[in-house]
Amino acid sequence: MSLDLYQYVALLRDLPEHGLRKGDVATLVDRVPHPKGGEEGCVLEVFNAVGESIAVVVVPCSQVKALHSDEILTVRSLLQAS
């Protein structure tokens, strides 16, 4: 998968420890090698609906996907994620 830095991506799994859900949108800000030679990690910054940063997380790159023109963004309360 070829993802460019600073592009929007969507999570492919829930991250309950961060209050995030599958489908939430984040910005890819960096890629990092796995410390033991495993899968490369994607560093993601997640913003709320008004553009404030609410989380920075690292997930395996296979756990995110690029956004496509046939998809639409939605809004939900972060409090509902718990």
Results as ranks from 00 to 15, higher is better:
residue 4 D to E: 15
residue 59 V to W: 07
residue 59 V to H: 03
residue 38 G to A: 13
residue 9 V to H: 11
residue 22 K to T: 01
residue 3 L to H: 03
residue 51 G to D: 07
residue 40 E to W: 10
residue 77 S to R: 09
residue 67 L to D: 03
residue 76 R to F: 11
residue 34 H to W: 08
residue 51 G to L: 03
residue 72 I to K: 09
residue 31 R to K: 14
residue 53 S to K: 15
residue 43 V to A: 04
residue 52 E to S: 06
residue 24 D to V: 02
residue 26 A to K: 02
residue 81 A to Y: 01
residue 7 Q to S: 14
residue 37 G to C: 08
residue 44 L to H: 02
residue 52 E to W: 05
residue 14 D to L: 08
residue 78 L to F: 08
residue 30 D to E: 15
residue 7 Q to Y: 02
residue 54 I to A: 04
residue 22 K to C: 13
residue 59 V to Y: 00
residue 39 E to G: 02
residue 45 E to H: 09
residue 5 L to N: 00
residue 33 P to R: 14
residue 21 R to S: 12
residue 10 A to D: 02
residue 34 H to C: 11
residue 41 G to V: 00
residue 55 A to R: 15
residue 36 K to A: 12
residue 73 L to P: 00
residue 30 D to A: 15
residue 51 G to S: 01
residue 48 N to W: 02
residue 17 E to L: 06
residue 37 G to K: 07
residue 66 A to C: 09
residue 20 L to D: 11
residue 50 V to H: 11
residue 33 P to E: 11
residue 14 D to N: 15
residue 81 A to C: 13
residue 72 I to F: 08
residue 77 S to D: 04
residue 2 S to G: 03
residue 1 M to L: 04
residue 11 L to Y: 09
residue 26 A to F: 03
residue 32 V to F: 11
residue 9 V to M: 09
residue 31 R to H: 13
residue 52 E to F: 04
residue 66 A to T: 13
residue 16 P to H: 05
residue 5 L to D: 03
residue 48 N to R: 02
residue 32 V to G: 01
residue 25 V to N: 12
residue 52 E to C: 01
residue 60 P to K: 08
residue 59 V to A: 06
residue 50 V to G: 02
residue 6 Y to R: 07
residue 61 C to P: 00
residue 72 I to Y: 14
residue 1 M to N: 10
residue 18 H to E: 14
residue 44 L to N: 02
residue 70 D to Q: 04
residue 46 V to C: 06
residue 11 L to A: 02
residue 69 S to V: 04
residue 22 K to V: 11
residue 15 L to Q: 04
residue 29 V to I: 15
residue 81 A to V: 03
residue 24 D to P: 03
residue 69 S to W: 13
residue 66 A to G: 14
residue 3 L to M: 14
residue 64 V to A: 12
residue 79 L to M: 12
residue 61 C to K: 12
residue 44 L to F: 05
residue 65 K to G: 06
residue 45 E to P: 00
residue 36 K to V: 05
residue 5 L to Y: 05
residue 71 E to G: 00
residue 3 L to C: 02
residue 66 A to E: 14
residue 14 D to K: 10
residue 61 C to L: 08
residue 19 G to E: 10
residue 54 I to H: 08
residue 7 Q to R: 11
residue 58 V to Y: 00
residue 56 V to Y: 01
residue 44 L to G: 02
residue 66 A to R: 09
residue 46 V to Q: 05
residue 23 G to E: 04
residue 76 R to T: 10
residue 48 N to E: 01
residue 30 D to F: 11
residue 18 H to R: 14
residue 36 K to T: 04
residue 3 L to K: 05
residue 37 G to L: 10
residue 73 L to M: 12
residue 2 S to D: 08
residue 78 L to Y: 04
residue 25 V to Q: 12
residue 60 P to M: 01
residue 72 I to V: 12
residue 74 T to W: 00
residue 51 G to C: 07
residue 16 P to F: 02
residue 66 A to K: 12
residue 2 S to V: 05
residue 39 E to V: 12
residue 54 I to K: 10
residue 45 E to D: 11
residue 42 C to Y: 09
residue 46 V to K: 05
residue 12 L to G: 06
residue 36 K to N: 12
residue 13 R to T: 08
residue 11 L to E: 01
residue 1 M to H: 08
residue 37 G to R: 10
residue 23 G to M: 07
residue 51 G to V: 08
residue 77 S to P: 01
residue 2 S to F: 08
residue 52 E to A: 07
